[in-house]
Design a protein around this nucleic acid. Structure first.
Lengths: 110, 110
DNA sequence: GTCTTATGCATAATTCTCTTATGTATTGAT
DNA sequence: ATCAATACATAAGAGAATTATGCATAAGAC
């Protein structure tokens, strides 16, 4: 697991990008997908995940659809056109950040 | 200037690495060096810088030397052996974080 | 010569984002 | 039956920064 401080500020970008790439997903599914993509290094906690999803929905970047699977409820999230417009900028911003940090730390990006 | 959230958690690493690379420096000088290295993108604020330097000193990773330049006071910081031991790990940790994030966001690191 | 900008340190109040803890409930495996 | 995994959600607290404030000297512009 990574030093959690480094993750700060990246959660929204992760959620938007994963939802853009994978289409309709529900919360728990997102945690598993991120865990898989990060090779077990990024474990999203529920206390961070759900408030973040709610916020993105309130901002109109995600939309939801509640589905009843037997007795269990799943809340599916889909990225909206506004969200799709934003995700590219967020990813670019992150890559620019990497580039800047690499210059400051005097390292080659891997 | 970058989205400030992304910087969170990187300040200590920046300070240790810059001091390791540049030897004895004082606070204001560090802000100018980081500004220069980041091409104006990372502007360290005093409210973050000074408490961070004090904390690193309290942890024995930096040591200080106060110099009176005429009527003005400068507080020089130098990295200690303990700090030197740590800085490599911190930089590696950051690079590993970049690698992980690149996998999650499905991008090539530049 | 005075006024603004740059230099130089420091702390306090506030904000933001996340972790940890708690709560509720269903499903599958042993 | 019991435990781990699945599935959602909120609240209290911690951590790291921003913003605001305070003090003071030095240099450059006009």
């Amino acid at each position: 697991m990574h030093s959690p401080e480094l993750l700060k500020g990246t959660l929204q970008t992760i959620l938007l990008k994963v939802l853009k790439d994978n289409g309709k997903m529900y919360g728990y599914e997102i945690t598993q997908r991120v865990k898989e993509l990060s090779d077990g290094r990024i474990l999203l906690t529920e206390g961070a995940l759900y408030p973040a999803l709610h916020k993105l929905e309130a901002e109109g970047l995600l939309q939801t659809e509640t589905v009843h699977m037997g007795k269990r409820v799943r809340k599916y999230y889909t990225i909206t056109p506004a969200g799709t417009n934003l995700v590219g900028d967020r990813v670019s911003e992150f890559m620019d950040f990497i580039k800047t940090m690499s210059a400051v730390l005097q390292v080659k990006y891997i």
